[in-house]
Each structure stands twice: as structure tokens, then as C-alpha cells.
Design a protein around this nucleic acid. Sequence first.
RNA 1: UGGGGCGUCGUCAAGUGGUAAGACACAGGACUUUGAUUCCUGCAUUCGGAGGUUCGAACCCUCCCGCCCCAGCCA
Length: 580
Amino acid sequence: MSESESLQSDFIRTIIEQDLKENKNNGRVVTRFPPEPNGYLHMGHAKSICLNFGVAAEHPNGICYLRFDDTNPSKEEVEYMEAIKADIRWLGFDWKDRLRHASDYFEQLYDYAVQLIKKDKAYVCSLNVDEIRAYRGTLKEPGNNSPFRTRSIEENLDLFARMRAGEFEDGSHVLRAKIDMASPNLNMRDPVLYRIKRIAHHQTGVKWCIYPMYDFTHCLSDSIEGITHSLCTLEYEDHRPLYDWVLDELEVDCHPQQIEFAKLNLSYTIMSKRQLLKLVQQGVVNGWDDPRMPTIAGMRRRGYSPESIRNFCRRIGIGKKEGVVDLSLLEYSVREELNKWVPRVMGVLRPLKVIIDNYPEDRVEELDGPLHPEDDSLGSRKLPFSKVIYIEQNDFREKAPKKFFRLVPGREVRLRYAYYIKCVDVVKDAETDEILEVHCTYDPETRGGSSPDGRKVKGTIHWVSAAHSLNAEIRLYDRLFSEERPEDTGETELSSVLNPNSLEILKDCRVEPYLAKFEPESKFQFERTGYFCVDAKDSTKEKPVFNRTVTLRDSWAKIVKKNIDNKKKAQSKEQGRNKQ
RNA sequence: UGGGGCGUCGUCAAGUGGUAAGACACAGGACUUUGAUUCCUGCAUUCGGAGGUUCGAACCCUCCCGCCCCAGCCA
């Protein structure tokens, strides 16, 4: 059984199976993905989306809500909501009619808060922020009771109603749960349930000037929706006792089980919404959908396919161990998927002019080039061939290093799907020594790329007809950071660990004419170079722009690197000997 | 002993008392009109450490070590 066919499991799915077996929730499996609309979704969210929607999809009656956790209007924007919805849809998940907002429940939440007051389990506290902090104690010392803790139920009811009515300034009062100021779990030291924020809310307008806190809102929203398994990340483990306290005190019918899993960390990138926002605001990247961003929008613009992201999320698994996943695993998932169906074309990133001396001046041939080496159903396209062509600069060397089997003076290479050519001359700039053009001869017998005499040519290079090719801009993307764990370097400013080569823009690239008519986001493999997509924002018919999604695996680069390393090693060895 | 978690290959990750899956990465090799893809082969005598229980321990017990999270009127 292949990996993709095997059913994935993890400790959360195991718990759910067990619950089902014990008929704990009458056979229901209900999850939710609860983003706060204060930024764009990133790869970490993709993991959570795949988990929550995935788990629901695996069960006949499973359902998953998309719920915006919108309890802090000062940080949230409708623009983010729309982007989040688009990203989830693009990833391939459907919430159907189950779109919710925590703000949908504000009235019910308020009633629950009143219930808590009536049970003498919540009180209005009039300490200011600093005082509340001081009364909370520290990690090792217990806190002290607020002087307002003993207010009467009547007074609390009255005050809370007037908080809602807008009688008080921001910060003057809060509603707090009455739990235990000496609890070793700081979350249980009379946590704030409601605060006054006299600002409009993107969903409820000016209806409210008090807004519930996460700990109060989340558990009750889960309960209202009938969530069976409330899946969240590890940092909420300390909040679970509070989650359970609220639901127990309120005696609700549905008491979901909160289960925590480790969030995703990816090498050479960051996953903190706050830091990502900073990159956007500081202009380090060009917006949330910059192809270097680990956001879903960024990866989409980069050319990653939804399926490859889903596959990646399946591969990394779900656990409680915090680690860092290798970027190479993501890249593998991307290549693996694109390899299956993406059309192969030719594009020359750094053109070198090649003149075929013995090819007739005005002749143009249409050669046939299949679009996929393993999938004939993709068909083929015509490749115009003529006397002057472009090849990649690094496919030609005047002096060939070991194992270099591309174009070299006196040697023969194959032009993919075209002819064998042999280099006969090199024209250089007299002053700069720069190679201006290379002269070759072709063998007419090798049309299509094979020779009747059966002689072998080791190298095959890509090319494009000079007169027929299109000018294109190509953007080469690389990892955004130079450090494997940018946030663990001790640097306070992330800008100091940025990879200076994360974006290289190539202006005068030449691509084959077949590429003239494609829609934004169309994906291709430029043979021998990598996977590319038509940029969704900047590409036009007149001036196509391609983004490099990911390079192809490059064993030649490895050989080169190994040779350099060996040379260095030999040198340092030599130096060491000389010192002795 | 403030509380809560976590430690299995370089990286993820199965395994939950019967003798260490898999994937990525890496290293060799085959094939190849992409130095791609594909295909072989290799890659943890050992599960953070030390004791103990047991015929048998990564799994159970004890102690120790290391790492992460928590003192927002953020989520």
C-alpha cells in the first residue's frame, strides 16, 4: 500500500474513534476552524484546516464549522475575513452553510455572563490594568483577591448592565470570573470575561461596547455549535481548566472536549502572524500574498497547488511534540504533485545567442514537442526552430569541468526535440572578454533529437528560437530567511536574518511562443529549470511574468558543490601541512 | 517540587509489555531526448539518562537531565 493510500491516523483521530466506539456523542463528529480575522492564513493554519475539515470529512455525519473568532474589533478587519474564506476555499475545503461568527452569539454570551453573576461566579472589578496585574501575583506567588470581589450580586448585575449600556469609559470596569486567586494556574486567577471597548465592530456595528474575552467566548461558542472535539494548539493547554470551568458552571448541554496539538514550525521561515504582519508593514515583502510568504495566499501566488499543501499536511502528521519541519519536505510535496500533470515547456532565463552556421538563413521549422514525458494525454505543441536560437548561459563553457556534458567547443549536444549541434566558434567582446555569441553547426540527420547512426550524445539542453520567442520577466524566489530558525537566533530584528537573495528578478528572459496565451496562475515546468506559474497580479499578454515555484532537483548542482567542498578541504589540509 | 506539556534516525513520525513502520534528507547504483521523473541499495543492536519490575521494556515503576508554554482588559 502506498503512503497516500494508507489511512492516516494520529492521537486525535484515535480519540475520536474511541469516542465513536463508546457512543460518547451519539455518533456525531463536529469540529470547527476558528480563525481570528486579524491577518492572513498561513501554513500553520493550513495544518489546522486540514485537521478540522479532514476529520469531519472522514465521518459520514461529520461536520466542520468555519467560525470567525471576532471578539476584538480593534484588531480585526473585514478584508481579512474575505481573504480567509478565499484561502480555505482554494485549499479545497467547504464549510457549506456553516459559516459562523463568535459575534453571532454576543447576546447569548451576555446572558450566560448574567447567569454567572447570579450564581455569584462572576463580578465586576473596577481595578485598572496595572492593579489587576499586581493583584494577579506571579508564577510562583499566589495572587490577592480584588477589593471588588465581594460586591453584591445586585450591584454586579447593575454595573454589568450599565457597562453594556455604555455608561463607563474603556478600562474602568471589567467582568471577572470568581475562581481562585491562589490557583497555580494563572488562567484561573479570576480571569477577565468582558472588557469595555467603545468602538464599532465590523459585524455588529455599534450595538456593543463591551466585548467578551477569548476564554469566555470560545468554549461557549463551541458548546452552542455542538462541537464534539475542539482542537487547538498546545499553548491553550493551560486554558483547558478554564474552558471546562465555564461550561461546568453554566451547566450547558454540550460540553466539547478540547484537545491540543503542536503547531507547525517550518525551517527557514516564521509562522507568527504578528511577525508576518510586520514584514508586510515594513515593506520587507510586497504584501501578504508575496510569493515568499508562508501564507496560503503567498504560496498560491508562488504556484503551490492546494493538493500539494494538503499532502504536506498529511505527511507531517499531528502530535504533541514541538519541532521544526524541513522545508525540503514541503518542496518535495510541491514537486511531486506538479510533476504529475504540469505541462513541460522551454524557457531561457539567461540567454546566450547561438548561431547555427550551416542552417539556411530564412528557414523556419515546426518541431513537435510533447508536453509531458509520461502523460501523452497532455498532447504536444509546435516548436519553431531557426538559424538563431538562445540557450542558457550556463549550458555553455569554453573549458568543461569534469563531468560537464553540455555545450563545449568541439563537442556535440542535443537541443531538446530538435537537432544535435556542435560548437565551432566563440565570439567574445575584445575588451570585457564576455561571450557574445556561440557558433555551431547542426546535423540535419538528427531532426527530432536522435541520430540514425545511433551515436550517443550525453547532454540535452533547452533552447528557444530567437525570432519566435517571447520576452518575459521571471522572478526567482528563494527562502525568505537565511537562518534555519529565524526566531531562535537571538536577533531581535528579523530583518537581520533575511536572505538577501530571496528574490531575483530576471528581465530579459526568452520563453517559447506557446506561452503567449495563458491565464494567471497557469503552471508549467520549464524543462531542466523548475516549476513556474504565470503571476496572478503583474503578468500581461504583452509582458508575461513568471514566478518560480520551486526548482527541479539538481544533481549537477550537487556535483559542483561537492567539487568545491573537496577543493576547499584539500586547500585547508594543504595549509595545515604548511603551518607544521 | 508554582502550574501545564514534551523528549523514538539530521528532520517529521508509527509503535502503548513480545523484541524499532514509513516519509523527507543524505550516500551509492540503474535507466533516461529534462543532470528531472522512475527504479534499486544503504541509512536507530536501540528509543534523553540511570536504576528497578519482568522470561521479555521505547512502552510499567523510581529518580535525574533537557526543551517548550503561562503573570494581555490578545487570540
